[in-house]
Amino acid sequence: MVTDQAKAEIEEYMGQVPSWLDHLSEPAADHSWGVVRDLELGETALPNREKALVAVGAAAAMNCPYCIHFHEEEARLEGVDEEGLGEAVNVAANVRYFSTVLHGSEVDMADFEAETGEIVDYIEQQQAAAAGDD
């Protein structure tokens, strides 16, 4: 159960204390809120809009209807339209698809990392050349 201090913070952020928070075990309750507060709602290296889109993609990949609903609403609050939400879900699906192919095919990780490095080098060279054209 969340402490009274954490409940006050949650209510300040959200206007209420969601009932599902009562399902958090005592040792983790306040800590769990702290992670949400500091990582998802706080000022971090990623803008809140990007964090919301990451959350939508992760929720979709996990097939969690609760998380999908919450994070889609969060993303809408950050100005993401339906097209953007759909794209976030499609990107997550694409990552999951290729992850399944890579794992199922048992692609060698060292080879994969080496090829990825070569791809990054090539793209960086193309970007540098394009910037030199300006």
Rank of each mutant, 00 (worst) to 15 (best):
W33Y: 04
Q16G: 01
V35S: 03
I10L: 02
P18E: 12
D38G: 04
G34D: 11
E40A: 09
D22K: 11
W20P: 00
A29E: 11
H23M: 15
E26F: 06
E12I: 00
M14N: 05
G34V: 05
V35F: 09
H31E: 08
V17Y: 06
P18L: 06
E11C: 01
E9D: 12
S19G: 10
E12Q: 15
W20Y: 14
W33E: 01
E12H: 11
S19D: 15
L24C: 04
V35R: 05
D22F: 07
H23R: 15
M14R: 06
V35H: 04
G34N: 14
P27D: 13
P18G: 05
L39N: 08
L21H: 01
W33T: 01
H23Y: 14
S32V: 08
A8T: 11
L24S: 05
D22M: 09
E40H: 06
Y13G: 00
H31N: 08
Y13H: 12
V17K: 02
V36Y: 07
R37P: 00
A29W: 09
V35L: 11
E11H: 06
H31R: 10
L24K: 05
G34L: 06
Q16E: 13
A28E: 12
D22I: 03
V35N: 04
V35W: 07
L21G: 01
Q16F: 10
A8W: 07
W33Q: 01
R37H: 10
G34W: 05
G34C: 04
S19T: 14
G15N: 04
S19V: 14
R37A: 03
Q16T: 05
V17Q: 03
K7F: 04
E26C: 02
S25N: 14
E11S: 12
P27F: 10
E11M: 05
V36A: 08
P18I: 09
P27Q: 11
S25L: 11
Y13R: 14
P18R: 09
P27N: 10
V36D: 03
E26W: 06
L21D: 00
W20I: 15
D38Q: 07
P18D: 12
G15S: 02
H31L: 10
A29R: 12
P18T: 10
S25T: 14
A28F: 12
E26Y: 11
V36K: 03
G15E: 07
W33H: 00
E26K: 15
R37F: 03
H31C: 07
L39V: 11
A29L: 11
E40T: 07
M14S: 03
A29S: 14
I10A: 02
H31M: 09
K7P: 00
A8P: 02
A29F: 11
V17P: 01
S19Y: 08
L39C: 08
S19K: 15
W20F: 14
W20G: 03
